[in-house]
């Protein structure tokens, strides 16, 4: 990967904002910069895809929590398998759907590492259902970043278990019909029932305010692991403009107006916060 640029260096992104109050720069306050762990190169993701935003959130949080040197990420199969090309941390690549099992092996043999998986909805909610359910049932001390765009993007836009009813995909050309293909699976709600899941939440990247809220959820999930919590999961409603046949703006609007009606946003369970409150 390319050498990360220090955002505090003059001429970096931080210099371009209005935060500078004196010409000397001594009292400037950094409010925005390039995360040191995020590679400075264009991603291969399509215009309007959410992965770039979510990669950035993870890079920011790993920087802010000083986790870069101790993190081992587990990449899964799908467009985001290349997360390791953009995040400057150790990574192991998992077979399709098996990331929570792979993360279990990493976690058990590296008890001091920060361990997270990055999985799409085909990966986590279809082929990898057994692995995520049982990692959560065991309460593996891992964080799961679950990016749900309701479609198989990498293979050309086929129906996923998360696809909305009526949604047209290349394998549901007349729209998803519940009599043939069942119903969208609310897997994060299912996981939130398990006592091994200490934090579960659903955010989106549909607009800057939602992105900010999603970052808070991810931070809470990561801190949960660092604080001795068990499994933490943040589902992030994301986009696939190419697979959906929409422009980037239309796809963001679709998340905000349609998808959140099926997959409501919010914190589903936060057992450590609940325990602290009860104490």
């Amino acid at each position: 990967m390319t050498t990360p640029r220090n955002a505090l260096v003059p001429g970096g992104a931080a210099d371009q904002g209005p935060a500078s109050t004196t010409p000397s720069g001594d009292s400037r306050r950094l409010i925005y910069g390039h995360p040191s762990l995020l590679a400075e190169r264009p991603t291969h993701y399509c215009p309007g895809c959410g992965h770039g935003i979510i990669h950035r959130l993870i890079a920011e949080l790993l920087d802010e929590l000083h986790l870069g040197p101790t993190t081992i990420g587990v990449a899964s199969v799908g467009c985001s398998v290349f997360a390791y090309d953009y995040l400057g941390i150790d990574f192991v690549e998992s077979p399709h759907g098996r990331a929570p099992a792979v993360a279990t092996g990493v976690r058990r043999t590296r008890p001091d590492a920060f361990v997270f998986t990055y999985q799409g909805d085909g990966d986590l909610a279809a082929i990898g259902t057994a692995e995520i359910i049982h990692a959560a049932a065991r309460g593996e001390r891992i964080s799961v970043v679950f990016v749900n765009n309701g479609i198989y993007g990498m293979t050309g836009g086929q129906m996923a278990p998360t696809t909305l009813l009526g949604q047209h995909t290349t394998s549901s050309p007349e729209g998803r019909d519940s009599s043939l293909a069942g119903y969208p699976i609310p897997i994060t709600e299912m996981l939130a029932l398990l006592p091994g899941v200490s934090y579960a939440a659903r955010g989106s990247i549909a607009d800057p305010s939602q992105i900010g809220k999603t970052k808070v959820m991810l931070r809470r999930a990561f801190e949960d692991q660092l604080g001795g919590g068990r499994t933490s999961i943040v589902e992030i409603l994301s986009t696939c403009p190419v697979g959906w046949g929409m422009t980037p703006q239309e796809s963001m609007d679709h998340v905000a107006n349609e998808v959140v009606g099926v997959y409501p946003l919010g914190v589903l369970v936060d057992r450590r916060a609940a325990a602290a409150k009860g104490a």
């Binding site: 998992s94 077979p95 098996r98 279990t104 092996g105 043999t109 057994a130 692995e131």
Partner: peptide, 24 residues
């Protein structure tokens, strides 16, 4: 040392993959 009874042989061998990646 580490012992995990997995949910399936698929789970077991992928745990092994993850553990092996850490040099175990």
């Amino acid at each position: 040392r580490v012992f995990v009874q997995a949910e399936s042989e698929v789970g077991a061998i992928n745990m092994a993959l993850g553990a092996a990646a850490t040099g175990a």
